[in-house]
Design a protein around this nucleic acid. Structure first.
Length: 502
DNA sequence: AAAAAAC
């Protein structure tokens, strides 16, 4: 297996360093106009690194998580290169697919496609997206009409190829987005079939959040002398995510999540569940208690999934309960808060999940609930992120008398009449102020209560964490952890064979 | 152990 050349590694610029302006890359006026339309002037660090390299025609291996701006990082130079080498004929039959972008999930495909379309809107280039769960016919019509750029999930793309709706014989550029995810999902055979259909002479861009041996193998098998780019989320971003966990009884988790959402009057909160059933249950519970919530997972129809995402983005619903369909790739970011209703089985997924919050200089909260049986998962997560997560104390939470697990779908009395008014299950009328708290917004400060332990009000009811083994544990946790989530440089080092073994 | 993805 050929080793990747160390000399190609590009050091990551500081997060707060303004590297360049988009108009310094030599991009066509049509592209710049599209960027101006959207108010983009300065590239993110990944864009500043990737755009010139892709423009040079080099292969790229990117260590990329969502929220780094990587989509523009590859799609802008792809559009530029396609424009520079324009097709001689404008006949529809002469719009062969010249750039192919593969993604693991349908939602990610849609979002990448939306970006590509926006960036190419002032150019003659055509693009489309194909993915499963939808009628083949409209996709077929567009493919047969000719498009230069196709964004696809692998299975449906192969379906179209087999039906001769599209040919991949003219593809000059291939992008594999979220490659680790695609391998996790068993797409390797599909990927190999697709790659075998492409011309040998082409440019390859591969993005992955992790560098497992499988990813390395895939990279060395189809990348040609790649430039390795580090595109970690900036430290600045990670610093702004304050993390907290609450240990609760398993049977109380649903109500605790409701308590947190209601008590903090959270809007635009993304809640992760490990299971589809769990996501549906929680979403139903929240809806029945008057919180605008909906679930998104793989058992929903594609229409339902898209509608849910759309409603969430538009702010029509406040809470999106998701399985890990949304953990990676999905371009819902800049959220004020992410809640883990379950701790993820895979510690890496924790990083992906909480990466949805605290972007672009804004602060974010990553809140998790867990029970006794998940202690091990928490340990794994803390080991991975190399920090201890603050233990929160739920102040003012009283579980309902009836077992929460048996009361889904059936009315039950308010668990706390003082804090939760009787209309708690009804939807809040439009006029009523959202600031009417059902539960204390912060830890109660009544005169009879003991004084707070700290001067600063702690938004997530934090209490100092007493580690079981003080010598071994990290320092006492503050509300805002200061170390970064996970330096991607380690991953790069690992890719190159010299880094720490995980 | 669960999720996602082609009919």
């Amino acid at each position: 297996m050929p080793e990747i050349d160390v000399s190609n590694v590009i050091p990551s610029p500081e997060a707060d360093q303004v590297v360049a302006r988009f108009d310094q890359f030599g991009l066509s006026p049509a592209i710049l106009r599209a960027l101006t339309d959207q108010g983009y002037i300065h590239p993110t660090p990944i864009q500043a690194q990737a755009i010139p390299i892709v423009l040079q025609g080099r292969d790229v291996m990117g260590a990329a998580q969502t929220g780094t701006g990587k989509t523009a990082g590859f799609s802008l130079p792809i559009i530029q290169l396609l424009l520079e080498h324009a097709s001689p004929s404008m006949s529809p039959a002469r719009h062969p697919v010249r750039a192919l972008i593969l993604t693991p999930t349908r939602e990610l495909a849609v979002q990448v496609a939306e970006n590509v379309r926006a960036y190419a809107q002032h150019t003659p280039l055509r693009s489309t997206v194909v993915f499963g769960g939808m009628d083949m016919k409209p996709q077929t019509v567009i493919l047969r009409g000719g498009v230069e750029i196709v964004i696809a999930t692998p299975g449906r793309l192969l379906d179209h190829v087999e039906q001769k709706n599209v040919s991949l014989g003219q593809v000059q550029m291939l992008v594999m987005d979220e490659a680790d995810r695609m391998l996790d999902m068993g797409f390797l055979p599909d990927l190999q079939r697709i790659i075998n259909m492409l011309p040998k002479q082409r440019q390859n861009l591969m993005f992955s959040a992790t560098f497992s041996p499988e990813i390395k193998r895939l990279a060395s098998s189809f990348l040609n002398d790649p430039v390795v780019i580090e595109v970690a989320r900036s430290n600045q971003t990670a610093d702004k995510v304050s993390q907290v966990v609450y240990k609760v009884a398993e049977s109380n988790k649903v109500e605790v999540v409701e308590f947190l959402i209601r008590g903090r009057q959270l809007k635009q909160v993304l809640v992760f569940s490990n299971t589809k059933i769990g996501a549906s249950r929680l979403s139903r519970h929240l809806e029945q208690s008057g919180i605008k919530a909906t679930a998104i997972h793989g058992d929903k129809t594609q229409q339902e999934r898209m509608a849910a995402l759309d409603a969430f983005k538009k702010g029509e619903i406040d809470v999106l309960v998701a399985t890990d369909v949304a953990a990676r790739g999905l371009d819902i970011s800049d959220l004020p808060c992410v809640i883990n209703y379950d701790l993820p089985y895979n510690a890496e997924d924790y990083v992906h999940r909480i990466g949805r919050t605290g972007r672009a200089g804004a602060s974010g909260d990553a809140v998790s609930v867990y029970s006794d049986k998940d202690e091990r998962l928490l340990v794994d997560i803390e080991k991975l992120i190399k920090q201890t997560i603050a233990r929160g104390e739920l102040v003012g939470f009283t579980p309902s008398s009836s077992s929460s697990s048996s009361s889904y779908g059936s009315p039950r009395p308010p668990r706390d009449s003082a804090a939760a008014p009787s209309e708690r299950r009804t939807r809040r009328p439009e006029g009523e102020s959202a600031s009417t708290p059902r539960l204390p917004e912060r830890a109660p400060r009544s005169s009879s209560a003991p004084p707070p332990r700290r001067d600063k009000v702690d938004p997530w009811f934090l209490k100092p964490y007493e580690p079981a083994n003080p010598g071994a544990a990290a320092t006492t946790v503050a509300a805002a952890p200061s170390s970064s989530i996970k330096p991607a440089r380690h991953k790069i080092a690992a890719l190159l064979g010299g880094g720490p073994k995980h």
